Amino acid sequence: MATTRAALTTQACLRARPQLQDLRVNHRLELSQFDYELPPELIAQTPAPERTGSRLLHLDAAGALHDRQFTHLPELLKPNDLLVFNDTRVIKARLRGHKESGGKVEALIESITQPRVALAHVRASKSPRPGSVLIMAEAFNVKVLGRQGELFELEFPERVLDLLDRYGSTPLPPYITHAAQPQDEERYQTVYAREPGAVAAPTAGLHFDTAMLARLAAQGIGESFVTLHVGAGTFQPVRVENLDEHIMHSEHYSVSAQTLQQIRATRAAGGRVIAVGTTSVRALESAAQHAGQDSSAEVSPIEGDTRLFITPGYRFQIIDALITNFHLPQSTLLMLISALAGMDPIRRAYAHAIQSRYRFFSYGDAMFIETPQP
C-alpha cells in the first residue's frame, strides 16, 4: 500500500527529551541478557473477572517500584496527558480442516493481502504443495498458491474476513492451554477495537473498560488511536544470540493526521504521550522514523509496514511512558521495554513481579513504566 507524505517533525510534533546513553557503543546485546525463569503457574490462563481487576506494577521515573491495582491508573496520570491506543481488531484467524488426502491441517492467518488471498502459517504432517486444495471446516476449499518463506499463500473462494467470521476461531496465544471459548471472543478483544486485521490482541488495552475510559476523559486525559495489526510473529522466538542478526517480523500500521495533531497539542500543553501497549509504541516510533525522511511542514497520515526492532540504546522520539503487560523471556517485547526503562530496572521489576506472584502474559497483570529521569 502506498505510504502518504508525513510531517512528524521535531518542530511540529516532538518535544526534545533527555536521551539515555547508547548501550551499543560499549558492548554487543545478546539474547541471554533478556532471559528469566518464570514459574509456569504464573502464566495467566484466563482473564480477571473484571477488565480493570488486574494488578498494576508501577515503575516510576526514579526507578522505584510500587504495587498498585489497575483502578489506580487515573491517579498516576495528569490533565493534558495523552493515551495512545491501538484500535486493531482480532479476527477469527484460526481454521481447521484437512487435505484432499485426509491429513489434518490447521491454518493461522498471518495477514490478508487481498480480499480473497491471505498469508498463513500451516501445520500439517507434510507441507501442502502449490496447487493443492485444503478443505476447511467441512465448508469451503482453499487453494495453496505457493510459499513466502515460512508462510503459505492461500486463495479463498470468498472474502477472507467473511469466511473467518463464519468458520474461524479466536487465535489464543500458544501459552494459553485451553481452546478458544465464547468468553475469549469478548475478553481477547479491546472494548475500542474497530479495525479488523490482528491475529493477536494488543493486550495492554484489555484492562480498559468503558467506565475507565469515561473516568479518564472526565479527568482531562486525552485519548488517541493508531492501528497496528499484530501478527503471529509477535510470539516467534528470537533464534540468534547476537541481536544484531535478528530479522524482525513485519506488521502493518497507520497513524492518522488527527493523532499527529493530538501529539503536537499534547507537547504544546506540557503533557506526556503515553502508549497503551508495545504495539502502539512500534506504530508511533515507526511513524517518527518515516517522518524523519520527509521535511514536509504539514501533518499528514502515515501508513506502511514496519520491521522496527527496538532494543536498549534506541532513541525514543515520541513516547514518555508505557502501559504494558508482562512479556515472554527472550522476547522482542521484553527488549523494547528494557530500551525504554533500562535493562537493570526491568530485571528488578520482573524479579519483584515473580516474587509478588503477579500474573503474566496476555491475560495477566499490567505495568505502568515511566521513562527514567536524566
Rank of each mutant, 00 (worst) to 15 (best):
A64F: 06
H66I: 02
D67E: 09
Q69G: 02
P74M: 13
P74I: 08
P74E: 08
P74C: 05
E75I: 01
L76S: 00
K78Q: 15
L82A: 03
L83W: 11
D87I: 02
D87G: 00
R94M: 07
L95N: 02
R96W: 08
G97F: 08
H98L: 12
H98D: 09
K99I: 08
S101T: 14
A107W: 04
I109R: 03
S111P: 00
I112P: 05
T113V: 15
Q114E: 15
Q114N: 07
P115T: 09
L119C: 04
L119Q: 15
H121Q: 14
R123I: 02
R123T: 10
S125W: 06
S127D: 09
R129D: 13
P130D: 14
G131T: 05
S132Q: 15
S132T: 14
V133Q: 12
L134Q: 09
M136A: 12
M136D: 00
E138N: 15
A139E: 11
F140P: 05
V142T: 05
K143F: 13
G149E: 11
E153D: 04
F156Y: 13
V160D: 12
V160M: 14
L161T: 01
D162E: 15
L163Q: 07
L164H: 04
G168C: 09
G168F: 10
S169M: 06
T170M: 15
P171D: 04
P171K: 08
I176V: 12
A179D: 12
A179R: 13
P182F: 09
P182Q: 11
E185G: 00
E186F: 03
G197W: 11
G197C: 07
A198L: 02
A198W: 03
L206W: 03
H207R: 06
H207D: 03
